[in-house]
Amino acid sequence: MKRALQAALVAMVFIAATLSFGAHGAAGQSTGSTASAVAPPGDAARGKAAFLKFGCYECHGTAGQGNAFSGPTIAPHPIAYAALIAYIRRPAGQMPAQSAVIVPDAAVADIYAYLQSIPASKPVGTIHALSGISTAPQR
C-alpha cells in the first residue's frame, strides 16, 4: 500500500496527457473486435451499470468527468464511437486494454449510450463557487 502513490506530479501530468483520447489516431487502429464507424444501438441504463461494473469510473469518474491524475474527461460529448472502441481495445497510452472477452462490444455500445446521455455541464457563470474566478494571469 505504501508503494502505491509512486507518481510525482510531473509523472501525473504526463500520464494524464498520455491517456487523452482523440489525438492518438486510435480510430485508424485495428480494434480486435467488430467496431464500426456508427455506434450500434445501446441502452444508457445498462451502460451506466457497465461503466461501474467494468471499473471505468475508477479513472474517469462516475459521469466520465475525468481528472488530471488518472483519466481524462470522456463525457459529456464523447468522442466518436469508432475512436472510443478502438482506444478501449488498443490504447495508445497507459490505459489498460479492455478486451472483448471481458467487455463485449454490446457493453461498449451501452457504455457509449450512457456517455451520450450525460447532460451538458452547467455554464460556469451560473455556479456560485466558480463565478468570479479570473482566467487572466494576475502578475
Binding site: 469518474g61 468527468q65 459529456p76 455541464s121 494571469p137
Partner: peptide
C-alpha cells in the same frame, strides 16, 4: 488564460453529481 478557462469548464462537469 486559455488553460485557466479550460480548467473552469472542466470543474463544472458533473457539478451536481
Amino acid at each position: 488564460a486559455s488553460r485557466r478557462k479550460a480548467d473552469l469548464q472542466a470543474a463544472a462537469i458533473g457539478w451536481d453529481l
